[in-house]
Simulated assay, not measured.
Amino acid sequence: MRGHCLCGTIRYEVTPPVLSCVTCHCDSCRRQCAAPMTTYFGVRDGQWRWTGDEPKTFASSPGVTRSFCSDCGTPISFRSQSMSDVLHLYVATLDDPNQLEPTLHVAHEEKLHWLKLGDGLPTCTGPDYTKVQPLP
């Protein structure tokens, strides 16, 4: 699996398996991605690598570091101290974003009231990764 930022400066490769793929509604993800929600997938360290330039990082909140391209601004990933051996990459940065589908909505309590979901996926409060179903 490969992905990149809008301008192509930041590039990465991932070796499956992917741990999870979820849609997040938290304020931090919405603000970083300038979207009402975002979908990301998690991979363990050692299963991914930068193949272009490395992204710039920003400590967005206690225990969370987010990365982005310093040239075009594309959000690339985030890492949480609570899952320190996992990098979460944004599905929209994949060369083929259709290869992954989310299995859960996290931080559902922060969902924008005007956003109507009709996908039938389960929801949870906060980033409760205990409810994340492993991908096949």
Rank of each mutant, 00 (worst) to 15 (best):
R79S: 10
H4N: 13
L104K: 03
E13W: 12
P122R: 06
T65F: 03
T39M: 03
D95K: 15
P136Q: 07
S60L: 04
T38L: 00
G118E: 11
G46Q: 02
A92Y: 05
G3I: 06
F78M: 09
D71S: 07
G52L: 09
D27S: 15
D45R: 07
Q99V: 14
D95W: 13
C5D: 05
M1A: 13
T130M: 07
S28A: 14
T57I: 12
P16C: 08
S82I: 02
P16R: 14
S60W: 06
H108P: 03
T123G: 01
S82C: 02
V86G: 10
V91C: 02
A35E: 10
Y12V: 10
T23Q: 10
P62R: 06
L135Q: 05
R11Q: 15
H105Y: 06
P122Q: 08
G3C: 07
T57H: 07
L112Q: 15
V132Y: 00
V14N: 05
G46Y: 10
G126C: 00
Q133K: 12
P102H: 15
L115M: 09
C29S: 03
R66Q: 08
G73K: 01
Q133H: 05
R30H: 01
G46H: 08
D85N: 11
S70M: 02
S28L: 09
H88N: 13
A59N: 10
E54Q: 15
E109S: 14
T9Q: 15
